[in-house]
């Protein structure tokens, strides 16, 4: 993350101030009629935008001339979102998109710009975007209609306030939510490279089924299945608490692929760790009860849910298995997350693989783990070295580009065929 003390010097108190954010997002399914949802759910005061636009990103903070399109809310250019609330825009017609199949916009990014009036208050955001977005300086006002990015002096690797992009599409479109923690969010993926496992799966789905499928990502780094968590931390509320808003609140949702549980077991958050976000290490039985609760709630809404086996964290933070104590002494959260976490992980995976507990299984563990006993249960060596911060050691928890690619290739796409 760039140093946000420059664009947001008062982030912990009054938040953003009279400035414009240009968020870069990649639609999974295109169309010429869209709408946006903004969130102030973690805010402590009303949030007002003077102006909001959608444009086609050209590169960096620049957009393609002629594509800047105003967004309205209740037919007004300005919108005020009360603290604790979300807000949908009106439908927006994009004159420069011919159809979902328009070859000129496949894989392109949207630049969604919004100017904050006065102070935003506490900001709602998604930390680990692994995507560069752009921010003007405090007090610079409305730059939502700028085609050039000059006013956007600052960058961020997070998405602020914007949470959802909808498109009008055929009612038989399959909509999949990738739900979970950092391994779904994309930690250690390639920056701006869209090589999360869900992006790999998206490519396969669109190859096979054309534009009759959409996959979106509702994962958060550090997220947990069950409570207690500190709900206003950057890792978000527990899955059981955010399911209704983040997953069941998705338009047209038909399927969920869920990979989560390692943070509940304590990986990186053991007894010696700072208990700011995750104060308790959970038992596998309690986590499984959380799985069952979420599965039942999704089923009540007619949504199918595929359980993903939890990938290895056996060597995480363990000096005996390679953790770099010289360069990262302070990140050593526990003496050893190995055996205890591994025992819990195996119990979770046995439950996930047992027929009847989910609508199907995605075996990410089998796709990434080295079957050689000499590997001690770690991921395959070729999946370990960090592919984003190439000068840093790996963490025995997050796969690299090759590992995420293997995960995306491991998903059986047959259940997601449009009717």
């Amino acid at each position: 993350q760039p140093d946000l003390a420059f664009p947001f010097p008062n982030a912990n108190t009054s938040g953003a101030n009279d400035q414009t954010i240009r968020s870069i997002v990649k639609p999974d399914l295109w169309g010429n009629t869209m709408r946006l949802r903004f969130s102030n759910v973690f805010g402590n005061q009303a949030l007002t935008f003077d102006s909001t636009t959608i444009a086609l990103q050209e590169y960096a903070g620049n957009v393609v001339h002629g594509t800047v399109t105003p967004v309205t809310f209740g037919r007004s250019l300005s919108v005020t979102i009360p603290a604790g609330q979300e807000m949908w825009s009106d439908p927006v017609r994009l004159a420069w998109v011919r159809s979902a199949d328009d070859p000129l916009i496949q894989g392109r990014n949207l630049a969604i710009s919004y100017s904050i009036r006065g102070d935003s208050g506490h900001m709602t955001y998604h930390s680990g975007a692994n995507t560069t977005s752009y921010i003007t300086g405090p007090g610079t006002g409305d730059h939502t209609n700028d085609a050039d990015g000059f006013a956007y002096e600052y960058t961020t690797s997070s998405w602020f306030f914007l949470t959802t992009l909808d498109v009008m599409a055929s009612t038989d479109t399959v909509v999949i939510c990738a739900f979970g923690d950092s391994i779904t969010d994309g930690t250690h993926t390639t920056f701006n490279g869209n090589d999360r496992w869900a992006n790999v799966l998206s490519r396969r789905l669109h190859d096979a089924y054309g534009n009759k499928v959409s996959i979106v990502n509702e994962a958060i780094g550090g997220n947990r299945v069950i409570n207690p968590v500190v709900a206003n931390a950057a890792s978000g509320p527990a899955a059981v608490d955010r399911l209704d808003r983040d997953v069941l609140g998705l338009s047209g949702l038909t399927d969920v692929i869920w990979l989560e549980g390692i943070n509940d077991l304590g990986a990186g958050y053991g007894a010696a760790a700072n208990p700011v976000e995750n104060p308790v290490v959970h038992t596998p039985q309690a986590i499984i009860a959380g799985y069952q609760d979420v599965v039942a709630r999704l089923h009540r809404h007619g949504v199918k849910v595929y359980g993903a086996t939890v990938v290895s964290a056996l060597g995480l933070n363990n000096p005996a298995q390679g953790w770099d104590l010289i360069h990262f002494p302070s990140f050593l959260a526990t003496v050893d997350n190995g055996a205890a976490v591994e025992a819990g992980r195996l119990i979770l995976n046995q439950f996930i693989r047992t027929p009847g507990n989910f609508d199907g299984v995605v075996d990410f563990d089998a796709a990434t783990r080295d079957p050689d006993p000499a590997a001690l249960g770690n991921m395959k060596a070729k999946y370990l070295p960090n592919s984003q911060f190439t000068q840093l050691p790996w963490d025995y928890l997050h796969p690299n580009h090759a590992g995420y690619n293997a995960m995306g290739l491991a998903v059986d796409i047959a259940p997601f065929a449009p009717a």
Partner: peptide
Amino acid sequence: PQHWVASWATSPAAYFVYVAP
């Protein structure tokens, strides 16, 4: 017939100021 379909999404959480190590 058409309806709204999620095309991009991310999960909201609370902001904290990143402190470089």
